[in-house]
């Protein structure tokens, strides 16, 4: 079996699904991260506890079980059809990684030196202005490398969506393997290479982000 002429074209059919799910769930998880991270730092007790609950549930249980819950369990329990499997895949991955990234956002904001906020207060900034002009821009620089790392993990996590019937790269690889059992090592090797190539720009971005983070905050 030729990896270039026979396997790769098959896997390419799943490229679009892998990439669109990755892009959408990454954006969704970033949104959840900022909402979750800021809510965790809110003065409102209920908001803080409620967000904490979300984070611990989604960090503490496995992504594949969450995926199956959304796809198989909830429609039966509540007798509703949530959405297409593409949307459910995005929601599950986004909520799961959003929980991890919320903690990144929270801890980055907390790690900005207290003197920064004090200097901003001495310039008579409001608490919103302190966050907007002083704390947040520095926290974001610290978040970038972690966001890069989690996005790489998210790419690899998208392979799970084949289990709810989405036709991504892994799905086509698995189909080929099931009809050519003897070629399993070669087919899976090409699948691995596919994911690695997709991860390369993310790895590059993460490196860059680490440089930016180093430059931007140390005073």
């Amino acid at each position: 079996m030729n990896p270039i002429t026979e396997i790769a074209p098959q896997l390419l059919r799943g490229l679009q699904t892998t990439l669109t799910v990755l892009l959408a769930s990454a954006l969704f998880s970033y949104l959840m991260a900022f909402i979750g991270g800021l809510c965790r730092l809110s003065k409102n007790f209920l908001l803080r506890k409620f967000t904490g609950l979300y984070i611990e549930i989604f960090r503490g249980t496995s992504l594949i079980v969450q995926l199956f819950w959304l796809y198989y369990a909830i429609p039966i329990l509540f007798d509703i059809d949530l959405a297409s499997n593409w949307v459910i895949g995005v929601i599950a991955i986004g909520l799961n990684y959003g929980a991890y990234l919320s903690e990144v956002v929270r801890s980055s904001i907390l790690s900005v030196a207290p003197g920064q906020s004090e200097a901003a207060t001495a310039l008579n900034m409001s608490s919103f202005q302190r966050m907007r002009f002083v704390i947040f821009p520095q926290a974001v620089r610290m978040m970038l490398p972690e966001f890069g790392n989690y996005t790489i993990q998210m790419l690899k996590g998208t392979a799970l969506i084949s289990l709810i019937g989405l036709r991504d790269i892994f799905y086509y690889g698995d189909i080929m393997r099931s009809t050519n059992l003897a070629h399993a090592p070669l087919i899976y090797a090409v699948v691995l290479i596919f994911y690695f190539i997709l991860a390369l720009p993310l790895i590059f971005f993460t490196r860059k982000a680490e440089e930016i983070a180093k430059k931007g905050v140390a005073s």
Binding site: A113, Q116, A119, L123, P137, Q138, S219
Partner: peptide, 17 residues
């Protein structure tokens, strides 16, 4: 009330970004 007050700190606290 604090608008007319300014402060300089021991550790400068410039905004590094």
């Amino acid at each position: 009330v604090r608008g007319d007050i300014g402060m300089v700190f021991q550790h400068f606290n410039l905004f590094p970004h």
